[in-house]
Every structure is written in structure tokens, then in C-alpha cells.
Nucleic acid binder design. Structure first.
Lengths: 224, 224
DNA sequence: CTTATATTCAATTATTTAATTGAATGCTTG
DNA sequence: CAAGCATTCAATTAAATAATTGAATATAAG
């Protein structure tokens, strides 16, 4: 290979490695997951991931420098968001490769689900078909701002913290499917457990909005 | 969030970051690109990326530890290969995010193509359709072992080094489309330039076999 | 203009990563 | 069994990365 081709390759991979480096930190991967649910402020993100605001901010600078997130000022707050759907896809692929290839990921995940009584696999694909056909009542049990940022069309927003109050409004003889942020989020596990305790017929759809989008389906923003 | 949820998240992202760290090095990204064309020995890879065998081997250990590549011994040689298609997809998504989001990637790439007289964009999608309909003669100008590892069905293997000898066998009045490893490989550029100089009507399809696979199309292995 | 709040920056320290070099290991051949 | 070849390992050195802490900056409110 000529030396100018060599130089070109070196430059190109140096640049692409910026994205790899952005993904090389556990904290930054969590930041990206948090942002995949919708835009947030630094303080809110820092609380979610249990890190100092300064440390969170530094990691956000690295992600922004790699152009995988963007920011805009809103008064004293800075709102961060994922740069685009392709970045969302990148996070999804990395997680799927991790789940498929790293035994440790599966071990950690199964321990997590077993502790919460959610290890039993439902038929996720059949459930998805029934959701799409409108055969079940779909609950989004994430916080309201994440629902507003984007949700499965037809889903009802019932944040976990409001489930007790709103449970009585749910049709008692219609099957319920609850989802939240994704396979590793406990909200839908908790919601399904509570609903079934009260005699509802609830099932957890273990994916999240990002997975729905990755499947090519449209989402709804705003209140409906 | 309860402390056991926090611990779970910390463990999970620690594990997923192993893959991010694997991708955080320019050399390892190039190794993955090289392996996306087919399995190779350490020495052959080291030559391709212009690194020492020891350094190449160390990076390969990191990639293997992250489970994105696999190895098998073949006498004194060790053959390395990508772990599966999902890893191929991960590399593809990372490159697309880089190309879409990092101005520097586009700058480096355009300079590279301009220097080689290949900056003019052809309509890649129309070309693909014509390839799929069998309307053109398709040449794979990569080395033979990469052709054997996997190629577009119906493509003829004409490694760049053999183009002069084999050119006379090509139908003179049928349009030719040449491809190689991907947008940043010079073989198809060189091949198209030479063919057009000799009066053939040749166009470059700038993607590679990995992109063909990412589009969901089947590839052919072996000699046909 | 001053104070409060949110966020970023800079310096420091500790840890991790990367390239080099020479030794060690595994397989093949004579 | 010894020599050759391919590959990996280990130690060393230098560079890069990460968390903490305190200072600096930007915006809003009184």
C-alpha cells in the first residue's frame, strides 16, 4: 500500500476511534441510555446515574466532542439530547452484541431479573404483534416527560408512581401490556407485579421505545 | 433507585464498556475492517495494517477478550475471524455514524477520493438495482481469498493485479460495475480507471460485501 | 448591582492503555 | 531431537484517561 493510502487510513481510523472512545466508558454508555429516553438536564442526568455534576458534565463534553449528543441552553439549564437516530441504533447494536457475545452480560442480567421475579421469558414477538393489532391495553410506565418525548402510539401514560391511583381506571377484563425503558429497567417489572396482585392480567413487554423505533415502527410524541 | 439496582447498572455497563473499549483504538478498528473481508493470519493482518506482529497480536487479544473476534490454530498459523454478523453490523453502524456526524471523517474521505479522481458521486442505489437485475457485468477486484470468503452472487473474480491479463475476456460492449472492500478501498477506483482507459464502460459501486450483507442480500462463498 | 443556581473549566493525582523489545511457547520440518 | 517459523507473553516506558476539588462562567431573580 502506498504511503499516501497508509496516511489516509491512519487519519480515517483516528477519527472513527473518537466514537469508539466515546463508548469506552461505563458511565458514558449509561449516559447514552438515559438520553435515549429523551432530552434531560445535567443535574437530572447526574442524579439518574449517581455521579457528581462535574463528572457527569465532563463525560457529556466527551460525548458532545464525538458528536453523538447535542446540547442547547434553556435559561440556566443545559439540555442534552442524542444527536440522531443513528446514534440510538449504535447503542442498540452495542448492547445486542454485548448480550449475545459476553457471557458476563447475560449472567448479570439474569441475576437481575431473577431477583425481581421476572426471569420467565414471555414470547416477546407474539406480544409485539398483539400490541400492533390493538388487542391489548398498552401502558407506558415511564415518567411523563419521557412519555411525551416519544411513546408507542395508543399507549396510555401511567407512570409507576401513579399506578395505584390510576389502576381503577383500567378495564378489568382486558389484557394489559406494560413497557418502560428497556429490558434492564425495573419499572415495568414492578408495574406488572402490582397489577397481577390486584387481579389484572398484565404482561411485561421487555423492550423500550428505542427498540420499537429500531424495528422501523413510528412513535407518537406529545400527550396522545 | 435502590442500591441493588445501582449495582446492577454499574456491573452491566462495566461489561458493555468492554466492547466500547475494544473499539476505542484506531488500530483495532482497522483490524476489524480487515477481518470483515474474511479470515486472516496474524502476519497477513500485520502487513495489511503496517504494524509489528507483536503489537498486532496484542490488539487481537483485546478484541478476542471482548468476544468480537474468534481464533483457531491452523498449524503454526492462527486464523482470526469476526465473531458474527452482528459484529460486522456494529462496525458498519460506527462507520456510518462517523461519516454522518464527524466533519473530519468527511474531509479526510473527500480528500482521499479527490486525489484519486473518484469524487464524483454515482447514483449508488440505481447501480445496486441494476446489479441485482443482472443488467451489468459485476467484477470483484479484491484478492482471490476475499472473493472466496464471500462475494456478490454472479460477480466475476478479477483481482486488480490480474486485470491487465483478464481484461480481454470481458465483453466489450456490456457495462461493467466493479467493487472491492468498501468506499475507502482504492482497488475498484484503480480498476475502473484502467477499464475506462481501455474503452470499457466501467463504473464503481462504492460499497463492499459487508454493506451488501447489511442490506439483507445473500452472498456466495467459494469459487462461483 | 448582588446573590443564587446550574454548569463548565482547570489542575492534580491515580489508573489505564499502548508500543517496544526480548523471551517464551507451540507447531512443523528435517 | 534440533532448528525454523509464527505467535504470544511479560516487562518497561510513555501517553492517555478518569475522578476529585475548587474556581470560573452564564443566566435569572430580587
Amino acid at each position: 500500500m502506498t504511503s499516501s493510502n497508509r496516511q489516509f487510513k491512519d487519519s480515517l481510523y483516528e477519527q472513527l476511534a473518537r466514537i469508539g472512545k466515546a463508548l469506552a466508558s461505563p458511565i458514558r454508555l449509561e449516559l447514552l441510555d438515559v438520553l435515549s429516553q429523551g432530552p434531560r438536564t445535567v443535574e437530572s442526568i447526574a442524579n439518574e446515574v449517581n455521579q457528581s455534576v462535574a463528572n457527569t458534565s465532563q463525560h457529556l463534553q466527551i460525548l458532545r466532542s464525538a458528536r453523538v449528543i447535542e446540547s442547547e441552553r434553556n435559561g440556566v439549564n443545559i439540555i442534552y439530547r442524542l444527536a440522531d437516530q443513528e446514534v440510538l441504533g449504535l447503542c442498540g447494536v452495542l448492547r445486542r452484541v454485548g448480550e449475545a457475545r459476553l457471557l458476563e452480560v447475560r449472567q448479570v442480567t439474569e441475576a437481575f431479573l431473577r431477583e425481581r421475579g421476572a426471569l420467565e421469558r414471555t414470547d416477546n414477538e407474539t406480544l409485539l404483534e398483539r400490541v400492533r393489532r390493538g388487542e391489548v391495553t398498552v401502558l407506558d410506565v415511564r415518567p411523563t416527560d419521557e412519555f411525551l418525548a416519544g411513546h408507542i402510539p395508543g399507549a396510555i401514560s401511567v407512570p409507576l408512581s401513579e399506578l395505584e391511583q390510576k389502576m381503577a381506571d383500567l378495564p378489568p377484563d382486558r389484557e394489559i401490556v406494560a413497557y418502560c425503558r428497556g429490558p434492564l429497567c425495573v419499572m415495568s417489572i414492578e408495574a406488572v407485579n402490582r397489577l397481577n396482585e390486584k387481579g389484572y392480567q398484565a404482561t411485561r413487554w421487555e423492550e423500550g421505545v428505542a427498540d420499537w423505533v429500531a424495528r422501523g415502527f413510528a412513535i407518537q410524541t406529545g400527550a396522545v
